[in-house]
Design a protein around this nucleic acid. Structure first.
Length: 424
RNA sequence: GGAGAAGUGGCAGAGUGGUUGAAUGCACCUGACUCGAAAUCAGGAAUGGGGGCAACCUCAUCGGGGGUUCAAAUCCCCCCUUCUCCGCCA
C-alpha cells in the first residue's frame, strides 16, 4: 500500500511512476478524499474534546453534590454533542473506508532502477550463465520423456482432479523430494531459517502481500471458512510477523520455506497446456527476507545470488532478467526473473522471480520495527524469491540432462540425495 | 462438536463505572555518584491519527465488533483466540 502522505508530497512523481506501469489512476482524487477525511476528523475530535470536558465537570459536581442542579444541563449538552459526533464519525468512517479500499488497489511504485517499458519485450537481460552446459544433441520435451519413462502421469491426474495436474510416479516423485531437500539444505547453509507454514491462509494474509482484493480470481478458495489455498509461500511467510513490532537488532530475518502452491491460472487457457510448466498445483521453495529499509537493495541482490546458486550447483543454464515497469508484479518495486534454458523449446523459461517490495507489503501487513532509543516505529522492507520452482527445475533436468540414449543423468549435486547416477 | 476459565503496555501483573493511558516489578533511556562498570538515587519513556516552525495541543486505543451511560479496562450482547476437561482423530 502506498503512503497517502507520500502521494500528497510527491503527486506528480507518483503519477508518472504509475503511468510507467500503465496504470491510469487519478491520485488527485485520493488527495481530495484525504482532505475530506482530515477536515471531518478535526471537526469530530474537537467536539469530542468538548464532550470530554463536560464529562469531567459532571464527575466533579457529582462528587460534591449528587443532585447539583447544573448536572442535568451538562448532561443535555453532552447528549447534543454526542449526536453530532456520531454523525461525523459515521461520515469519517465511510471516507476512511473508501480511501483505504482505493489505496489497496494501487500497485507499488517502480524503483528508479527498474527499466521503463511496456511489456515482457522490454525486459533487460542482466547476465547469462552456463552456456557450456546446454545440450548439443536433439532433446525430447520433458513431458514426452517423462511419459515414456512412466514417471510423469498426466492422464490419470485429469481423472482424479482436472487438467493441469500431474501424478509424479517413482523416480519423478523421488527427484521432486530430492530437489526440495537439496534446495532447503543449501538455503539453510546460507543462513535462512526454515519454516513450514500453513498451506491455507485467511483473507487478511492475502491482503497483506497484495493478492487481495484485486486478484481474488487467481486463487483457490474455501468459501465456508475464509481460507484460501496459498498461491506461494510468500503469503504465509511474509505474514508471519503481521501486526508485530520487531526489534531492529533482529533484522534482517531470513526464512526459507517449502510449500506446494495452488493457482487457478484463470486466463491462461491456451498456454503451456502440456507438461509441468503451468499446473494448478506445484512445489516451490521460497526465500523471504525482512530487512531495514536502507538495506533492501543490497539484500535483493544477495537474494538473487542465493537463487542463482541453486541453478549453478545443478549446472542448469540460465539468464537473469530485470523486469521492466510494464511487466512488474503488483506489489513489487523491482524484480529479477531467473529463466532456465529449456532445450526442447529452444528458449529460456521463468524458474524464479525475486522481488523487492520496499515497504509496500509492510504497510499492508503492518510489519514494523523499533530501534532502541529512537521514538516511534517504522515499516520494514520485505523481499522474496523462488529458489526455485521445483516442477520447472525438474523440467530443466529432464531436458538438459537428457542423454542421447533416452536416459537422464542425475545432476551431481543431487546424486547423494537420490543414491544413483541415472534415471531410467 | 460439548462444558468451564481467561485475554490489560516490550514482558510480568494490579485495576470492577468518574482527572486511569492505566499502579507495581523487570527490561529500556537520561542524569547524579564512580577512574570506569556494577549497585544505589533522581527523572524520562506506549502506539496510531490530526493540528502547530516548535515547545506543545487534541482524539483514539486495555483481544475484535456492537450496546447501556453525561462517563466503560470495569456493566450487557455477539465474535475471535488461548488454556482445562469430555468427545472425535492423523
Amino acid at each position: 500500500m502506498l503512503d497517502i502522505k507520500l502521494i500528497r508530497q510527491n503527486l506528480t512523481e507518483c503519477q508518472t511512476a504509475l503511468q510507467h506501469r500503465k496504470e491510469n489512476i487519478n491520485l488527485q482524487d485520493l488527495i481530495d478524499l484525504d482532505d475530506r477525511r482530515r477536515a471531518t476528523e478535526q471537526k469530530r475530535s474537537s467536539l469530542e474534546a468538548e464532550a470530554n470536558d463536560l464529562q469531567k465537570q459532571v464527575g466533579k459536581l457529582k462528587q460534591q453534590d449528587p443532585d447539583h442542579p447544573t448536572i442535568e444541563q451538562l448532561r443535555q449538552k453532552a447528549n447534543e454533542i454526542k449526536q453530532q459526533v456520531a454523525d461525523l464519525s459515521k461520515q469519517e468512517e465511510e471516507i476512511k473506508q473508501q480511501l483505504h479500499q482505493q489505496l489497496l488497489t494501487i500497485p507499488n511504485l517502480p524503483h528508479p532502477s527498474t527499466p521503463i517499458g511496456q511489456s515482457e519485450a522490454d525486459n533487460q537481460t542482466v547476465r547469462t550463465w552456463g552456456e557450456e552446459y546446454k545440450p548439443t544433441h536433439p532433446v525430447m520435451p520433458h513431458w514426452e520423456i517423462g511419459e515414456k519413462m512412466g514417471i510423469l502421469d498426466f492422464e490419470r491426474a485429469v481423472k482424479i482432479a482436472q487438467t493441469r495436474f500431474v501424478n509424479l510416479v517413482g523416480a519423478a516423485a523421488q527427484l521432486e523430494r530430492a530437489l526440495i531437500n537439496f534446495m532447503l539444505d543449501q538455503h539453510i547453509k546460507a543462513g535462512y531459517g526454515e519454516v513450514m507454514p500453513p498451506f491455507l491462509v485467511n483473507s487478511q494474509s492475502l491482503q497483506g502481500t497484495g493478492q487481495l482484493p484485486k486478484f481474488a480470481t487467481d486463487a483457490f478458495r474455501c468459501q465456508e471458512d475464509d481460507l484460501w489455498l496459498i498461491p506461494t509461500a510468500e503469503v504465509p511467510v511474509t505474514n508471519l510477523y503481521r501486526d508485530e513490532i520487531l526489534d531492529s537488532e533482529a533484522l534482517p530475518i531470513k526464512h526459507c520455506a517449502y510449500t506446494p502452491c495452488f493457482r487457478r491460472e484463470a486466463g491462461s487457457y491456451g498456454r503451456d497446456t502440456r507438461g509441468l510448466i503451468r499446473l494448478h498445483q506445484f512445489n516451490k521453495v521460497e526465500l523471504v527476507k525482512f530487512v531495514l529499509p536502507g538495506e533492501s537493495e543490497r539484500e535483493h541482490e544477495d537474494l538473487v545470488s542465493d537463487a542463482e546458486n541453486i541453478l549453478q550447483l545443478l549446472r542448469l543454464p540460465y539468464r537473469v532478467v530485470a523486469l521492466c515497469t510494464g511487466d512488474l508484479g503488483f506489489s513489487a518495486m523491482k524484480c529479477y526473473d531467473l529463466e532456465v534454458w529449456l532445450p526442447s523449446a529452444g528458449q529460456y523459461r521463468e524458474i524464479s522471480s525475486c522481488s523487492n517490495f520496499g515497504d509496500f507489503q509492510a504497510r499492508r501487513a503492518n510489519l514494523r520495527y523499533k530501534t532502541k532509543g529512537k521514538k516511534g516505529t517504522e515499516f520494514l522492507h520485505t523481499l522474496n524469491g523462488s529458489a526455485l520452482a521445483v516442477g520447472r527445475t525438474m523440467c530443466a533436468i529432464l531436458e538438459n540432462y537428457q542423454q542421447p540414449d533416452g536416459t537422464v543423468l542425475v545432476p551431481q549435486a543431487l546424486q547423494p540425495y537420490l543414491g544413483r547416477e541415472y534415471l531410467v
